[in-house]
Structures are given as structure tokens and as C-alpha cells.
């Protein structure tokens, strides 16, 4: 049952104080609001479901990182059996089957994970680095810094993300670097807004005042006092953001704009998504969709759990 226990162990639902303030994280907010309500009764644990999600992510990451050294077939070799027309259905030799060119789908999915996970990591890494920095500066110094940075965030948020991604990838070469950086730029504003809001909530607290009274300079206060506190909600956001970036790569693939060389999850799904292929060989598209879905689910769930977990500690103060 604990895997279903998304809202924590609370029994009384609660007044949500914020109403509709932060809409970007809205879909995951109800858990937070409810956990805040009776923090005292909240059992502090990540739960069984979290560890299932973490295990799945561990397997996917390990397979992706170690792929060249593990006994996977070459994802680009056509394993044609003479006298039989590919695609071949899943079997002992090809666990996930093969595509129309008799390329092994298991290894294509694993090697696709290398690209998709890299895109996710680089994108959210850039978001955390630049967005986090800008958000903390805006939230700590306020005044003009805040106005300028918030305006930049508004510009980015009022721009349809997919359009920017289409534009950049259409105009520049479709390399892993371009696509990762494009999605990274898109991650800056959402991450930055959360960093700013969190910083503001901490900047006036006693421990910051104490550090300043002891003579700490701004830089030291930001790094030693604020950063550790801002990083916690950001780490939960990072997992959610990574899921978004991985899905975005898939979307770009369907517009013909994903990484040109080698398999990616989006491209692997696309190879099997045509009507005729879907009818004859549904495994080509559907198995990678399931892998993608489980990964996104695991990232969302783990992020949600981590957030609830640390929020509960906050209310205990």
C-alpha cells in the first residue's frame, strides 16, 4: 500500500494558503500543502515506492553509462537472418525484438538512454547552475537585481518553449550539444523562479542575520548559509525537470529535430510509430515507450517524495 501513499500519512486535508501562486509546480503541490498541515504527525520516511523508483533509475543509469562495456549488441548493426524479413519479434536473441533494419531494439533502447539521459542531465544542470545563480542573486539582493532578473524570467516563461527548441534545432546542426544546451536554456527560468522564491523565504531568517552580525560578507552568506537551504527544494525540482527534458527530446524527435547521430529514445519510438510498422511490429515503438514512461514516472515520483520529505522537516521547525 505504501507505493500508493503519494500524499503521505496525513488524515486531515488542509487549507492551501498559496492559492495559485506557483503554477509551474501546481500539479505536484497538493502533497506539500497537506504535509504542511500536520507536520507533527507526519512520519519522516521516503517510503517503499521511492526505493522502487530509485532502483529503476539506478538500473537505467547504470545500463546507459556502462553500455559500451556490457554485452549488448551493436545498436547500428543489421542482424539479418537469411531467408527471414525483419523486423523480428522479441525472442531469446533479441529480448526487445528488432526494428525494420534488424537492429537490436534492446541495445538501441540502452544506447538511446545514453543520449536521452545526457540531454536531461545537461539541461537541468544548466538550469540549476544559471537559473539557481540568477535566482539566488535576485532573491538575496532584491532591488534592481531582482527587477532585471525577474523580467528576464518573465520573458522566457511567456515564450512557448517548443518554439524556441524548434527554432534553434532547425537553424543549427542537430548535435547532442545543441539540443542539450537548447533545453538547458529553457530550464533556466523555471528553476530560477523557484530558487528566487526559496531564497527570499530564507534571506530574512535569524541564521542569516546571525551570520551577518558575525561579520560574514554577502558571498559567504550566499554560499554557506543560503545555498544549502535552496539546494534541497532545487534537487526535487531537478528530478522533475530532468523528466521534462527527456520528454522534450522525444517530442523534438517526432518533429524530425532530435540528435542526428545514433539512437535516442524519441527516435527509437519514432522508427516504430508509423501505422504499418505499428500494426506489424508493435514492439518497436511500444517497448521503448514503456521504458521512457517508467523512467519519467520514477523521476516524478522520486522528486515528489524528496520534496514532501524535506517540507515535513521544515514544518517541524
Amino acid at each position: 500500500m505504501s507505493s500508493l501513499d503519494i500524499n503521505g500519512a496525513e488524515t486531515t486535508p488542509v487549507v492551501s494558503a498559496t492559492g495559485g501562486a506557483d503554477t509551474s509546480a501546481m500539479s505536484f503541490n497538493d502533497a506539500t500543502n497537506q504535509a504542511n498541515a500536520d507536520g507533527a504527525a507526519f512520519k519522516r520516511r521516503l517510503g517503499f515506492g521511492f526505493w522502487v523508483a530509485a532502483t529503476w533509475l539506478g538500473i537505467v543509469f547504470a545500463a546507459a553509462v556502462l553500455a559500451p562495456w556490457l554485452p549488448f549488441k551493436d545498436p547500428n548493426v543489421n542482424n539479418i537472418v537469411s531467408g527471414q524479413r525483419p523486423p523480428y519479434a522479441p525472442s531469446g536473441t533479441h529480448l526487445f525484438g528488432t526494428d525494420q533494419d534488424a537492429r537490436d531494439m534492446l541495445s538501441r533502447t540502452v544506447f538511446g538512454a545514453r543520449v536521452s539521459l545526457t540531454v536531461g542531465l545537461v539541461a537541468i544542470g544548466m538550469g540549476m547552475l544559471f537559473g539557481g545563480f540568477m535566482g539566488i542573486v535576485a532573491g538575496y539582493f532584491r532591488g534592481w537585481w531582482d527587477r532585471v532578473i525577474s523580467f528576464i524570467f518573465i520573458i522566457f516563461l511567456s515564450f512557448p518553449a517548443l518554439v524556441l527548441a524548434i527554432l534553434i534545432t532547425a537553424l543549427l546542426e542537430r548535435s547532442l550539444r545543441t539540443i542539450s544546451i537548447t533545453l538547458g536554456i529553457l530550464a533556466i527560468a523555471p528553476v530560477g523562479r523557484v530558487a528566487r522564491a526559496t531564497t527570499i523565504s530564507f534571506a530574512d531568517r535569524e541564521f542569516v542575520l546571525a551570520a551577518r552580525t558575525l561579520g560574514a560578507k554577502n558571498g559567504r552568506i550566499i554560499v554557506k548559509e543560503l545555498l544549502p537551504n535552496v539546494l534541497i527544494p532545487m534537487s526535487a525540482l531537478a528530478l522533475l525537470g530532468m523528466a521534462v527534458a527527456i520528454v522534450a527530446e522525444g517530442g523534438l524527435a517526432f518533429l524530425g529535430l532530435s540528435v542526428e547521430k545514433g539512437p535516442t529514445w524519441g527516435k527509437v519510438i519514432l522508427t516504430g510509430a508509423g501505422s504499418r510498422d505499428l500494426q506489424k511490429a508493435p514492439w518497436i515503438a511500444i517497448i521503448p515507450i514503456i521504458v521512457l514512461f517508467l523512467t519519467v514516472l520514477a523521476l516524478n515520483y522520486a522528486g515528489d517524495r524528496i520534496r514532501t520529505y524535506f517540507d515535513a522537516r521544515e514544518t517541524g521547525l
Partner: peptide, 14 residues
Amino acid sequence: IAIPNFGLAVILKY
């Protein structure tokens, strides 16, 4: 929420 729309589209079509 975790199903990407293109994945759902392919599965529904299938």
C-alpha cells in the same frame, strides 16, 4: 501525468 503525449498517442493509435 507521467505519460508523454507522443507515447500515449502511439499507444492509442495502436
